[in-house]
Design a protein around this nucleic acid. Structure first.
Lengths: 201, 201
DNA sequence: GAAAAAGTAAACTGATGGGTGTAGTTTACT
DNA sequence: AGTAAACTACACCCATCAGTTTACTTTTTC
């Protein structure tokens, strides 16, 4: 019999808890998730849960850490058409937003953090750090004289704003399904074209 | 002595409760607001509170009703420049979003309704009904051949999306202050110009 | 001025839920 | 086989909070 089982029981329990918590938080949000519920779903006693994570907050933090680790950087290429590069970026972004589990978790983080001014500011700052990569791209295109002058950060914000208007806020706030592939293409096309119509020279 | 006091004690209590609840909900959200807190802030006994409003939900509904009653309709005028008309509309919209108490309440409604799929959908549907007025305007401008063909609803969504990207979501989600007058003008100018750059013919 | 309507304070109910303590059982390792 | 670490079941503590009850006072109204 092959030793396909390298994980100790404790490690199995640990990841079972994480997985169960991820689902529970995504379904019910932070406040409406109970530790009893998590432990039941994980098939673990409540005491074990607390042996692995000392509080509900700590568990929540561990779960949501991955949400902040996205990479939206893109290298500006002087040879390729702007439209192509922007479209590629948008595709990457929408793919993430549509990935399973992302929306539910993002929603429960929002719902929880929105209440506290500090936490909300910190969370959104981290969330929007990802726009830095794009604003660098816009700046490069600007210096290459392919876009007219403007504030790169604002342009990035406008670009992402258009995308989120159709592919994030409705899903987050109104539980709309992720856009279909056809819808996705239209959203990307329109957003890219609109930005370029305004800024390309 | 003038009879400036036409309100009965009961009416005074009633409005004191409404005002206190408005503030409490805006500050702490639905779940984190307690009926004890509301009655204390209103200077009213808890029993009196319950004599006026039979449950926390009912109170919340009464408070948030006004949030949905905005009117974004605008009459298309063939003679005036499109830019001028759109700018006027945007100003009206941003004025509402910046009005005191609006953001806090909107935030607590979001935070509460987001948890339930049905309520979230219903709430957002009502919230976005206001875009109907604008899409009718876009359609009229289209029929007047001053805009090129397109889906009026989508254009309205894009237009409002740009405005909200700078003047609603950051305030709602990240507790950012409302834009200053200067910022407001830039936001409006850019959003209007971008829409027209893409759709005007 | 008396009855009816409305308000008050404070204790209480019932349910929920985070977190702990304990006594006994299972698993892993030597 | 024996020990330590990890897990389980479950009772328990404690705080919060929606909503109620009671016994009593104030205001309104006729």
């Amino acid at each position: 019999m092959p030793s396909s089982q390298k994980l100790t029981r404790s490690e199995l329990k640990h990841s079972a808890i994480l997985e169960a918590a991820r689902l529970e938080f995504a379904e019910h949000g932070f406040q409406n998730t109970s530790m009893d519920g998590v432990s039941a779903r994980a098939g673990v006693s409540k005491r074990t849960l607390y042996n692995h994570f000392s509080s509900k907050e700590e568990l929540f933090d561990k779960i949501t850490e991955c949400l902040w680790k996205q990479d939206d950087s893109i290298v500006y290429c002087p040879k390729r058409p702007l439209k192509q590069q922007l479209r590629q970026l948008a595709e990457k972004k929408l793919e993430l937003m549509a990935s399973p589990g992302y929306v539910g978790l993002a929603r429960s983080v929002m719902g929880e953090y929105m209440r506290s001014q500090e936490m909300a500011q910190a969370a959104m700052a981290r969330f929007e750090e990802n726009e830095d990569g794009v604003s660098i791209w816009f700046q490069a295109a600007m210096q290459d004289k392919r876009l007219r002058e403007g504030d790169p950060k604002m342009i990035a914000h406008q670009f992402y704003g258009l995308l989120k208007t159709f592919a994030l806020w409705p899903q987050l706030l109104a539980h709309q399904p992720a856009p279909t592939n056809e819808e996705r293409d239209v959203i990307i096309e329109q957003s890219v074209d609109m930005i370029l119509a305004y800024y390309q020279q």
